[in-house]
């Protein structure tokens, strides 16, 4: 799973890079517009250390932001799974709020909280949170009739059990959603850094853009891609392991 993710990224990145180099060659563009291979390699040597720590910095905010949004999404998703008045209210509110572009709020967040760690964390969490919430709400609000019916009839159904059944039956879907939301959290963090933060790879991309340094931007994209592929691969592997262990330890029983 992990290596497949990395291969996939390397293939996509190489195709993109080759396409750029092809355009450069066909249109006879200078290194200023599209850098040549030599300049890209030279830039890689020059910025690798700095960009590596920048990506790690961004990654730390991403992971934390994703954890916060997963916790929030499950909290709200579990609360909103009921077909009661409160459940319906939570669902409608979530669907309506998610329609608002979070990036548009970013400048307000920066003015209120400054361009430090908290702003980046908040924006990353918010961008990652809503798609997660909608999936979790959908999963938690859909009964697994075959299984739940037995517990309801025997009077053993509790809300914790209901959540467990629905999570277990949709574990693959949840793993995919959580893994996919890692990209959103990363994108959110980078957007935040790009707009106004003073650290992270988004901030470095901004500086490279100021200096029309496309080689720097390409290196940054490469490092972001590799790191996010590893992270997503790890999440997927973890999801698989949890599923296997859960079904083995419970021998198929909830």
């Amino acid at each position: 799973m992990l290596f497949r993710r990395i291969y996939q990224f390397l293939i996509v990145y190489s195709i993109g890079l080759l396409f750029l180099l092809l355009i450069k060659s066909v249109l006879s563009l200078s290194d200023y517009v599209i850098p040549g291979v030599g300049l890209i390699i030279e830039t890689f040597h020059n910025v690798f250390d700095t960009y590596f720590f920048d990506v790690m910095n961004t990654m730390s905010v991403t992971v934390l932001g994703q954890c916060v949004s997963i916790a929030m999404a499950f909290g709200v998703g579990i609360a909103g799974r009921r077909s009661s008045w409160m459940g319906s209210f939570i669902k409608v509110t979530a669907y309506n709020i998610q329609a608002y572009p979070i990036v548009a709020l970013a400048p307000i967040i920066f003015i209120l909280l400054g361009d430090g760690f908290l702003s980046r964390l908040l924006i990353a969490s918010m961008i990652c949170y809503f798609p997660l919430l909608l999936s979790v709400l959908g999963i938690m609000a859909t009964p697994v009739v075959d299984i739940e019916h037995f517990y309801i009839i025997t009077g053993r159904m509790r809300w914790q059990l209901e959540v467990k059944i629905r999570a277990f039956e949709n574990l693959s879907k949840l793993t995919t959603v959580i893994s996919g939301s890692a990209t959103l959290a990363m994108a959110g963090t980078i957007v935040a850094e790009f707009i106004a933060a003073n650290a992270g790879i988004g901030y470095s991309i901004r500086i490279a853009l100021y200096q029309s340094n496309l080689a720097g931007i390409l290196i940054a994209l490469f490092m972001i891609g590799i790191v996010i592929s590893i992270y997503q691969g790890c999440l997927e592997t973890l999801g698989e392991q949890i599923k296997t262990r859960w079904s083995v330890s419970k021998r198929g029983n909830i």
Binding site: S30, D31, Y32, V33, P35, L39, Q211, S212
Partner: peptide, 12 residues
């Protein structure tokens, strides 16, 4: 600075 950077990278 944009002009000089571009000249440095071969722009005409």
């Amino acid at each position: 600075d944009q002009v000089i950077r571009a000249l440095d990278k071969g722009a005409k």
